[in-house]
Amino acid sequence: MSRWMFTLALDAPGAGGTTMSVGVGILGSGNIGTDLMFKIFRRPRLKLRMMAGIDPQSEGLARARSLGVPTSTRGIDAILEDPEIRVVFDATSAKAHLRHAPLLREAGKLAIDLTPASVGPPVVPVVNLDSYQRAENVSLATCGAQATVPMVHAISRVARVEYAEIVATIASKSAGPGTRQNIDEFTVATARALERVGGAARGKAIIVLNPAEPPILMTNTVYALVSDVDPAEVERSVQAMVERVQRYVPGYRLKVPPLVGEGPAGTGRVVTIMVEVEGAGDFLPRYAGNLDIMTSAAVQVAEDLAAGDRASVA
């Protein structure tokens, strides 16, 4: 059976008691992989069995070894050889994940993809993890989507959202080459997630890099055009959603609560919301909330699936 099932955690050797855990592996030994490692350490249900990279000089692998985590420089092959690894976080690149995805599927391992490869449907755990209970490949939507789709969803569950637009502003230092070389892919994928996951009829995404020192925290503005809306209802829905995101991203904060104003002539009303994301500072710097929200979401997905307790985020 190639399909990863939630019951695997319960099938684990020594099942019983409270020490059941699911074996996980990290592919990619860069900053994202390292931050994932620290987050996994704090989750008792997840047992980190390996970090695999390809660069013998990798600082990430050295750090993992020093913390007692088995490492390999044979990348995906080493991960595939360990049958105890049931969940694999892919923190490599879109190109590499396209190669990894079918291999992981054949091996019956669940892939949690942090790259922009989009092999699976986009997931923002707090909104739509439930829809993909049997997915073999959980493709995390972009960081911009992780930060804003919950807000769009919070509006769209109480009003029809004709159009949602988001502006994600991140510190220049937190934008690696992957983002810089694929900025169009980022905006397009984020816009699609506003529609498919957020529930907007149309979506648009804008990203701005700001080089200020000290680096700014990730700031996100959400605008939603709605035909009609009860401001109090939107406020309640948004506040409730912010609290749910905060369960796995403690630094997720509402900076400007929903403001309801008149849209440009003939477009109805506009709801404006601003949220800031401060990282947990596990390994990545605190200003890199855009990266932290990805690693936090990834680990939350793994833990929820391992626990069979999908209600905790969804």
Binding site: V167, I206, V208, N210, T219, L259, M274
Partner: peptide, 17 residues
Amino acid sequence: RRRTVGGQEDQIIQVAY
């Protein structure tokens, strides 16, 4: 003072707020 850059029109709303 916040060293905003081009494109950050949303910051105008935040600052005014």
